[in-house]
Amino acid sequence: MTIAKKLLHTRYRVNDLERTVKFYREILGLEETRRHKSSRGSELAFMKAPESEELIELCYFPGSGPVEVQPDLTHLAFEVDSLEEFGKHLASKGYKYSDGPHMRPEGGGIAFVDAPEGYEIELIERAK
């Protein structure tokens, strides 16, 4: 039987590739693994979280018009050690949580920050 075996990457189209790559690198700590231009003319940058195999493909394709992200359309979720410490990191870079943090009585919690173009990034602190 032929099946899809493994998630390789997810694409997010963006208005400003350099600004978005900088956000993912400096705010989230992701690494840019490669960059190239597709046969259709899209500029692509691939980003990877340190402990993940899957990539995020950031795509700049101005020919399809501006990106307008609807509220609650999609988000990426990343695990962090501490929402409190990550919030301090955000503040040092001029950002803040757009929602939360919401801590659970049993430990752990979630918070959100908006990436360029309005894509939501969920941060999850697991209970210890």
Rank of each mutant, 00 (worst) to 15 (best):
P66Y: 09
Y119C: 10
Y12R: 14
I56E: 01
S42A: 06
I121P: 09
G41A: 10
E85A: 13
G108Y: 10
G87V: 05
E84H: 10
E43W: 08
S64Q: 06
E125Q: 05
E26I: 06
P105S: 11
P66K: 12
L83K: 00
V69S: 04
A77G: 15
L55T: 03
V21R: 00
Y12Q: 12
V80A: 10
S98C: 05
T74C: 15
F23C: 07
I27D: 01
E53D: 11
F78Y: 08
G65E: 04
M1N: 11
R40P: 06
E18K: 05
E54V: 15
I121R: 02
F61Q: 00
T2Q: 13
L58R: 00
I110W: 08
K48I: 04
G100C: 07
K128S: 14
L30H: 03
T74E: 12
L58C: 04
E54K: 08
A111Q: 04
E18T: 12
E57K: 13
T10N: 14
A49V: 10
F112K: 12
E54D: 13
E51V: 13
I121T: 07
F78S: 08
L30Y: 01
R11I: 05
G107E: 06
L55A: 02
R104C: 07
I56S: 03
E120N: 09
A49S: 13
S52N: 14
H89C: 05
S52M: 15
G65K: 01
E31F: 07
E31R: 15
V21Y: 00
C59L: 03
I56V: 15
F61L: 08
K22Y: 01
F61G: 01
I56G: 00
P50H: 09
K48L: 06
F86S: 05
A127S: 10
G94P: 07
L58H: 00
R126W: 11
I121Q: 02
A91C: 00
K88W: 07
Y119E: 12
H102W: 14
R34W: 15
S64C: 09
R40H: 11
L7N: 15
A77P: 13
D99Y: 04
E53S: 08
H36S: 10
R19D: 07
V113Y: 00
F61W: 03
P66W: 08
A4R: 14
R34S: 13
V80F: 05
V69W: 04
E32H: 13
G29R: 14
K48T: 07
A91R: 11
S82C: 14
I27V: 15
E57S: 11
R13T: 06
D99A: 05
V67I: 12
T74D: 11
K93G: 02
H36P: 02
G108H: 04
A45R: 01
C59T: 03
I110H: 04
V113E: 04
Y12P: 06
E106C: 09
K22F: 02
I3F: 15
L123M: 10
H9A: 09
G87K: 01
E57C: 08
F46N: 03
T74G: 14
K6R: 15
L123P: 02
E51N: 08
M103H: 03
E54G: 07
L30G: 03
Y119T: 12
T2A: 15
E85K: 10
F86Q: 02
G65M: 06
G118W: 10
D72Y: 14
D99E: 09
E18G: 07
D114N: 13
K6C: 06
S52T: 13
D81M: 09
M1A: 10
